[in-house]
Design a protein around this nucleic acid. Structure first.
Lengths: 189, 189
DNA sequence: GTTATTAACTAACAAGTGTTAGTTTTAAAT
DNA sequence: ATTTAAAACTAACACTTGTTAGTTAATAAC
């Protein structure tokens, strides 16, 4: 655990505020006040408000891309791959619930990097869908609408940032296991 | 279909813009421009920007509350009740995808009615959880963490507003059916 | 055809926005 | 002790924000 730089402090403080009110509703003065300094002082460490948002979102998006690369490569079955995706989301989200709020809700306020972000997201979803389709073909996954399946699972995983902070008692491993069970086997007896 | 009043036009236009950029990033001038009038003219029909948000969110929240009342009363099994909840979400969301974006993402910007909104939401979730717990007790639902089950299903249903506009070819009934299957039975073969 | 009523307009306000310039303090290096 | 660099400060800028006041145009009622 190396101690975070002032810049990282700004980014983390901003992410926390962005989670509460959204990027547009948070002012540079809000961020400064939360750190006990003046707004102008922030500019000794960052170039603009926009740069803070980019730092938060792009780092996370690339984490997901890297994780998906590994899962794609693995020579495991479709259901194991889906379980690994669940673990990926639980892990990344556990480490940065605040940032995940921006990734989910404030990506449209990206200015220079919007196209890059969208590219990463589309690729991620394409790989996700491929895993499901492959599973259906190999008879490991029930025959159904793969679009609905992906939407359902991904919606749940994308909402984890809201849920994890409220359930601190549930460990990451336990949560991933419980989620995998529900997402893969449903709730029907 | 009675023709919508000017006030309703403002609310619907606003909801559409709020969905794209969020409440805070949309200005009264944006709303006016989208309607081909000047910002000041909006105030002949509404009292404040805040009132627009309240109109969008509270109406939807009360629709959900009413729907849940009916489902709660019904003398059906737990799984049927869950299916009815899916239908409720699909129907309300299909009729107002734009408004659902505000309900999900901009509720924290409610000023006078925030507590009321939160009360409705907590009650809704309480009833939802009760249905799952009842189902487990009656052996209709797999024995597992009811909190995770509710979170998973509700996350999916709350994301419908993102998904329905992209899949216009899938009808409401068909979607509700496919979703129920996936949420209740999972994807495992 | 005059009168109300509705809904648009122009102009402006006070407060808040991100950001810059220039200066002072703090702390480390020589 | 002096110099240097990092990080804080004050003050201000140009612009945008929600909203109000006062006025004019369009529509319906009599």
């Amino acid at each position: 655990m190396k101690k975070e730089t002032r810049k990282e402090e700004i980014i983390n403080t901003s992410a926390k505020l962005f989670k509460e009110k959204g990027y547009s509703a948070v002012t540079m003065r809000d961020i400064a006040k939360a750190m006990g300094i003046k707004a102008a002082s922030l500019y000794n460490h960052i170039d603009s408000k926009q740069d803070i948002l980019i730092a938060i979102i792009i780092a996370l998006a690339e984490d997901f891309t890297k994780g998906m690369e590994l899962i794609k490569k693995a020579k495991t079955g479709s259901l194991e791959k889906l379980e690994q995706i669940v673990v990926l989301h639980v892990n990344i989200t556990s480490n940065n619930t605040d940032g995940m709020a921006s990734l989910n809700n404030d990506w449209m306020h990206l200015e220079g990097q919007l196209e890059y972000y969208l590219k990463l997201r589309v690729e991620y979803e394409d790989h996700f869908r491929d895993i499901i389709k492959e599973g259906i073909k190999k008879n490991e996954i029930r025959d159904g609408n793969p679009e609905i399946m992906m939407f359902s699972i991904l919606s749940t995983l994308r909402s984890l940032y809201l849920w994890i902070p409220k359930k601190e008692d549930v460990g990451a491993a336990e949560l991933a296991l419980g989620l995998s069970k529900v997402l893969i086997n449903g709730i029907n007896k």
